[in-house]
Design a protein around this nucleic acid. Structure first.
Length: 266
DNA sequence: CCATTCCGGAATGTACCTTT
DNA sequence: AAAGGTACATTCCGGAATGG
């Protein structure tokens, strides 16, 4: 049986990616990295779980599990994130129509593309392009300066992020391990110290932090070409529990791209 | 004309269980 | 412990309808 894996994003793992591969899992990592490379090089083609699994000498069932352990995303959702990320770049940097971009990144159905894009990014393709054109040239730092004052007292959730003192830091709370759609709560800041998020209703949330150089413009932060971005991920329980403490690191090839338009949604 | 939304059929993801 | 397999609920694809 041949299985298509081009579906949408939205996994259910605690972290964006495992911190380090276990020593026994080195071959897993190699197989997954090879599969990710294949996905990146063949975005516009139909891709099948069984082909990636066979290339790594795994059964489709086991490959699916291994892939998720390494990347924290399922193969299909990882591929969808890659495709939407490329679509974002084309929407910003090319004059192509949405219809043509959908085909170019591997969607045979425009409706599927539009639906996926809106759910993952938080804006429809046309809205995304319009906002990128309108705000793209503005520096990200301006967003940080415009951000509302941090709440205080019992209505806040503090998040500590190491290594972000000299950058523009976005932090969001999400229901799922991969960020999609509007965050439950989010904040942007450009000064050292903890980030204070508006407290959501009680529950367990996943935290994503993305940091950019202070001189980056909004469009550059959205088109997946800026190589200075760093990420961190974790989880937090509301109420109580320990404060969320994250450490920024460089993105790895096996990290799913962050396609959520946080700078435009904030 | 281009983009978005709706909806039914089909593929996928997940939670187990079994085998090696 | 790692790998393979199954069942079934969930999610997605893509054509049709609708909107701007």
């Amino acid at each position: 049986m041949t299985r298509r894996i081009d579906d949408a994003i939205g996994m259910g793992r605690t972290e964006l990616a495992q911190t380090e591969p276990a020593s026994a899992a080195t071959s897993w990592h190699t197989a997954v990295e090879r599969a990710v490379q294949q996905m990146r090089e063949n975005l516009s083609d139909p891709q099948y779980l069984t082909d990636h699994a066979r290339a790594g000498l795994f059964s489709p069932f086991h490959f699916h599990r291994v892939f998720r352990n390494v990347t924290a995303a399922t193969p299909g959702r990882f591929l969808a994130a890659l495709r939407i990320a490329e679509a974002q770049r084309l929407l910003i940097r090319s004059p192509l129509r949405v219809t043509d971009i959908a085909a170019r990144v591997g969607y045979s159905s425009l409706s599927t593309f539009t639906t996926q894009f809106a759910r993952l990014v938080g804006l429809s393709p046309r809205q995304f392009r319009a906002m990128a054109i309108e705000f793209g040239d503005r520096p990200l730092a301006a967003l940080a300066a415009r951000a509302p004052a941090a709440p205080s007292g019992h209505d806040e959730v503090p998040v500590l992020v190491d290594g972000a003192d000299d950058g523009i830091l976005f932090v969001g709370l999400f229901h799922h391990g991969i960020p999609q759609g509007a965050p439950v709560s989010c904040a942007v800041r450009s000064t050292p110290g903890p980030v204070r998020l508006r407290r959501p209703r009680d529950g367990e949330y996943h935290v994503l932090a993305v940091c950019f150089d202070p001189d980056v413009r909004i469009a550059e932060s959205l088109d997946h070409r800026h190589d200075c971005r760093v990420v961190a991920a974790g989880s937090i329980t509301v109420p109580g529990g320990r404060p969320c403490h994250l450490r920024l690191r460089r993105p790895r090839p096996t990290d799913p791209p962050v396609v959520l338009a946080l700078p435009l949604l904030g």
